[in-house]
Design a protein around this nucleic acid. Structure first.
Lengths: 115, 115
DNA sequence: CTCCTTGTTCGATGTTCGTCGTACAACGAA
DNA sequence: TTCGTTGTACGACGAACATCGAACAAGGAG
């Protein structure tokens, strides 16, 4: 028994009512994580490995954890895969229009840069 | 001449069109800076020392610099004082409803905590 | 069972961040 | 000019962060 990894850690998600807006802002203030969120807005559910980001797998795991613990995404185990969705409705119930306004602002910025 | 400080550095503000939404999110993802912004929403202009935050003066200067360089606030020299305002209109022109939505979300969270 | 795929955990590295104390610069008033 | 007020610049410190590689765990296909 060379390591004491134990089994796969259970996925922890904060309750909708416990989501902290500062945590959400911090989670979104990173280009890789913003790309993840934008991708999920277009596609409702994706597996981890299918996001158009260019970082090492372990780095991607880290970013998913930040988003998950901030309450932005939900992850579901399915065999070997881990499926990811936005917690859009819960987020919207607590902070109306927050996610949409932020992502729209980023979209607008990306558009103005491609000119 | 013990130091080579030179004179007071000029205040640098990014052009409205160069404001980066990720910088704005990062600037707002801190409780002290969020308090500064909320205070400025209530009062249009304040001097640095009049904010209800509990940090050392040099720390406050640091937070003002982060907000200023992100394009969230504007600072104006006036004799010994430095007056601070929100760049609300410029921000709103580039990212409609962004600041208002974020600050409202924080207000809502603060309200729900005081229950 | 064996191999491949998927994604994680751990440990390390270098960077950025929030905080402070100290020194100091500019201004205004006495 | 001297003194008090206001706020900055610098340097340091510990914590948090983004990133990676290596090892590994679980599941599916053959």
């Amino acid at each position: 028994m060379p390591r004491s990894h134990g089994r796969r850690a259970a996925l922890v998600h904060p309750d909708a009512g416990a989501i902290d807006v500062l945590d959400v802002l911090h989670a979104l203030a990173d280009p890789t994580r913003m790309t993840i969120v934008r991708t999920l807005r277009a596609d409702p559910e994706r597996a981890c490995g299918t996001f158009p980001v260019d970082v090492a797998p372990s780095t991607l795991t880290h970013h998913f954890r930040v988003l998950r613990e901030a309450g932005v995404i939900r992850q579901r185990e399915d065999g070997n895969r881990r499926w990811t969705t936005l917690r859009l409705e819960e987020l919207d119930a607590r902070f109306p229009r927050l996610l949409d306004t932020i992502v729209s602002a980023y979209d607008r910025q990306a558009d103005s840069a491609n000119t």
